[in-house]
Amino acid sequence: MLDTTPLLAAVDRFADRLRAAPQSRLQRGAAAEGLALARELAVRAQRIEEPGGQPRVMPDAGVFAVADQLAVAGHDLAEILRTAADSTAAPSRELDEAVGLVEAAAARATL
């Protein structure tokens, strides 16, 4: 079974930073960065879980909800990667890419 700890740690760290950020920082782009990442992680999870299906877009629930949206999307992807490791062509590659996406988005968010 695939160890998804690096993804969970990166997602939780970024989500915690978003939760602790003042409203002004969230509105200056940190929330948008978090939402874009949450949407990307959700699409990746959906593509693994429902290959060939049309991915659904995560809604914008506001700057104060984005940390929770990110946490949910990241944890969903981690669980899908963990449980689908035998049926997915390259789960470790997917995991590495997801961790890289989270780290890059966190750096761009400037919290």
Score class of each variant (00 low, 15 high):
Val99Tyr: 05
Gly100Val: 08
Glu79Leu: 07
Asp76Trp: 11
Ala15His: 08
Arg47Tyr: 10
Glu49Gln: 08
Arg28Ala: 15
Gln54Arg: 03
Asp60Cys: 08
Ala73Phe: 06
Gly53Phe: 15
Val72Arg: 00
Ala20Pro: 03
Leu37Pro: 02
Val57Leu: 15
Asp12Val: 01
Ala31Asn: 09
Gly52Glu: 06
Arg47Ile: 14
Arg25Gly: 12
Leu2Met: 14
Val11Leu: 07
Met1Cys: 09
Ile80Val: 11
Ile80His: 02
Ala67His: 09
Ser24Leu: 15
Pro55Asp: 03
Leu2His: 07
Leu41Arg: 04
Glu103Arg: 13
Asp76Phe: 11
Ala85Tyr: 00
Ala65Phe: 01
Ala71Val: 00
Gly34Asn: 14
Arg25Phe: 10
Pro51Glu: 09
Gly34His: 15
Asp16Arg: 04
Ser87Val: 13
Pro55Asn: 04
Gly62Thr: 07
Asp60Ala: 01
Ala10Lys: 13
Ala73Ile: 04
Ala38Pro: 08
Ala15Tyr: 07
Ala30Pro: 09
Gln69Cys: 03
Asp3Ile: 06
Ala20Gln: 13
Ala67Val: 12
Leu101Val: 09
Ala61Cys: 11
Ala38Ser: 13
Leu37Phe: 07
Glu40Ala: 03
Thr110Pro: 00
Ala30Cys: 15
Pro51Ala: 14
Ile48Val: 15
Arg13Ala: 12
Leu77Phe: 09
Gly74Leu: 05
Ala45Pro: 12
Phe64Asp: 10
Pro51Trp: 10
Leu41Asp: 00
Asp16Thr: 13
Glu50Val: 14
Ala15Met: 08
Leu111Phe: 13
Thr83Phe: 12
Ala106Tyr: 00
Arg82His: 14
Asp96Val: 06
Asp60Gly: 01
Thr4Lys: 03
Ala71Cys: 01
Ala10Arg: 05
Asp96Ser: 14
Arg19Tyr: 15
Gln69Tyr: 03
Ala89Leu: 08
Ala65Gly: 01
Val66Gln: 02
Glu49Ala: 08
Ala38Phe: 11
Val57Arg: 13
Arg13Tyr: 05
Glu33Asp: 13
Phe64Ile: 08
Pro91Leu: 10
Met1Val: 12
Ser87Arg: 07
Asp96Pro: 01
Arg25Ser: 04
Arg56Pro: 04
Arg93Trp: 07
Arg56Lys: 12
Ala84Ile: 00
Thr88Cys: 01
Ala45Ile: 00
Ala84Tyr: 06
Glu94Ala: 14
Ala105Asp: 02
Arg19Glu: 11
Pro59Trp: 01
Ala105Glu: 02
Gly74Tyr: 01
Arg108Val: 07
Ala45Asn: 09
Leu8Cys: 09
Arg17Gln: 12
Leu81Asn: 01
Arg25Pro: 07
Ala84Thr: 02
Arg28Glu: 15
Ile80Gly: 00
Ala73Glu: 05
Ala31Cys: 09
Arg25Tyr: 04
Ile48Ser: 13
Ala85Gln: 09
Pro91Tyr: 11
Leu26Ala: 04
Val66Met: 08
Ala89Met: 02
Glu97Ala: 12
Glu33Met: 03
Leu81Pro: 00
Glu33Cys: 14
Leu111Pro: 00
Ala109Gly: 08
Asp60Phe: 14
Glu33Tyr: 03
Ala15Arg: 11
Asp76Cys: 10
Leu18Ala: 02
Leu37Lys: 06
Leu18Met: 06
Val57Ser: 14
Leu81Trp: 01
Glu40Met: 05
Val66Tyr: 00
Ala21Val: 12
Pro6Asn: 06
Val99Trp: 02
Gln46Leu: 11
